[in-house]
Design a protein around this nucleic acid. Structure first.
Lengths: 336, 336
DNA sequence: CTGTTAGCGCTTTCAC
DNA sequence: GTGAAAGCGCTAACAG
């Protein structure tokens, strides 16, 4: 078993002191060029790398970012994680990923654990339960210790930190407007995530669009986790003769498509469907689903960028901002 | 800015030595109950938690597992990651996730970085490029340092370590057999991942099944990353009058379904489709896709379990094993 | 029972 | 130019 080389061993072998070796490796001008060369040579030979743990203990920096996600099987968060990882690794940061499964308790545990593992900062998307309970002591604790936090997508006004969100309200307003413009008059809004902040914003956008237009009628269906989405949506579609559906989340949109097909409706001739989604569903579904793309990767990358920036230019009195990433309505032609 | 409390500060405030405080916190029987109580009280008051970095530096254990994944947008790996995270966190391990984007160079960099960050062990799925180049020095280096590695799904015979794989060969054999049993005689095999070890195994299974049955004819389509999958598959389906397709990966299967529908084929009446996939595609597609489920979560969980086990019972001479997780053919009735 | 000491691997100040 | 020494926060062997 070959162990990792330490400064001590290099020093011994070179008949130098540890501090001289350390300085040489940093090309400190104090040290003679000759010594520097000798040290580098041996260090290369042994493929010396400083022990990150020791460096961290000394510097109080770990070059590690803690990531708190509610889920990972949801493609939106997988994409966001990808964006985060790409951006973080560019700046030499590692990411420690924790998945709360939408549980408040797990979220608290993870935040504490990562904090005691001395991550340099956090990127967080709140769990559903946390948003419902509205309890954020675990983040306030971080703030007190001046640990930078960047929240994305699932955020809360009660925490003063940088945030990266999507323009949900405008996006859903635009989506509805698009449906209206293409001639839809009876529009349904279906969601399986009514509890979340994002769903509320999206609904506001819907209201704004329809309020300006009294020839349009609106029906809503909000499904709980416990219900059978397929059955409920099928029933809903049968009972409400709508000519368009806006799915506020990917599941709602996908199930709507499938149930429409099952009922023999032609898309988009009989019924138009738009979904909030970044998933494969929409990419590979047939007929193609028109979607509000949330640019999850950008969202994640942006969050990482902001955090890394903060970590690199630490300032005592920092004023936090909220960055809004624009969505886009991706219209996919189903005849293609 | 409130900083974290250290043993030193507790000791000072209690007029005790650091070591007495340290022992008290561990309820060392050497220490008087009274002292123990005093210490615990103050520690609770300050919400003391040992500095993980210092503990790691001392113990040479970080309670951290390095995860090397080729991608994360692929649902299979997202599920595997989920399984890993769940299992690891059960045992108090954190995971540091790195995504190679199928690049050999990035893989090497990440492995080295994580190793110098002193992760306790690795869970790896090889990148495509690494499998093609067949270069594994970065893992041999770990082996020399006795760092445990568990590989899953994308593995190599050239590295002696624990492996968790899926019974790809048997699975595809069974899938083909199922198609034959349900009356298919002209069967196509389509893949977009021809380079990977798993694809090769799956193809072997196909051959075994068809070799035993000379009334069955087989056509193959292997697509490169560069080609336009949709166009190619559509053309292929038009030119080959097959009555069944086995997609060796999710993309192949999904695109096949879509193109079949586009061409007006009824599934499964005109054409049967089975796909190797664990994705949402199959879950939400309509008509339902019959799939070979690779139990990605189980795969990840198993890998984590094996690694944690090794980490907890370190033995100098360990004989590595390969664990095979069974797939299952999930037959989804499209009329339902 | 409690305290002293050394050491994990590194950085950095201050002497020589 | 080089080295000794202190210290990051913790553990553990050893003394008292």
């Amino acid at each position: 078993m070959r162990k990792k080389v330490t400064l001590k061993q290099l020093a011994k072998e070179l008949n130098l002191s540890i501090s001289t070796v350390s300085k040489s490796l940093k090309n400190d001008p104090e040290i003679s060029q000759k010594t520097i060369n000798r040290v580098h040579e041996l260090a290369n030979f042994y493929n010396y790398k400083p022990n990150a743990l020791a460096v961290s203990l000394k510097s109080n920096k770990t070059k590690t970012i803690g990531i708190i996600l509610p889920e990972i099987l949801n493609h939106f968060f997988a994409k966001a994680l990808f964006g985060i990882e790409q951006e973080a690794s560019k700046s030499g940061y590692k990411i420690v990923t924790c998945i709360t499964n939408e549980s408040y308790k797990k979220e608290v545990e993870y935040v504490e654990m990562l904090n005691y593992s001395s991550v340099d900062g956090f990127i967080v998307a709140l769990s559903q339960e946390t948003q419902v309970l509205n309890k954020f002591d675990h983040y306030q604790a971080l703030k007190r210790e001046n640990v930078p936090i960047v929240m994305f997508d699932r955020v809360s006004d009660e925490i003063d930190c940088d945030k990266v969100i999507v323009d949900d309200k405008i996006a859903s307003k635009n989506a509805i407007q698009y449906l209206i413009d293409t001639g839809c008059r009876k529009i349904a809004v279906i969601t399986t995530i009514g509890d979340l902040s994002v769903a509320k914003l999206r609904l506001e956008g819907v209201k704004e669009a329809t309020d300006q237009n009294d020839t349009v009628s609106l029906v809503e269906l909000s499904l709980k986790d416990s219900s059978n989405f397929e059955t409920e949506i099928e029933k809903f579609l049968k009972n409400n003769d709508v000519n368009a559906v806006l799915g506020l989340d990917e599941t709602a949109a996908a199930v709507t498509i499938n149930m429409s097909l099952k009922l023999g409706y032609k898309i988009p001739n009989d019924i138009s469907v738009i979904g909030f989604t970044d998933g494969l569903l929409s990419k590979h579904s047939y007929p193609k689903l028109t979607t509000v793309s949330q640019h999850a990767e950008d969202l994640g990358a942006k969050a990482a960028q902001i955090l890394v920036n903060q970590l690199n230019n630490f300032t005592e009195n920092y004023k936090s901002k909220t960055e809004v990433v624009k969505t886009s309505l991706i219209i996919r032609d189903s005849t293609n």
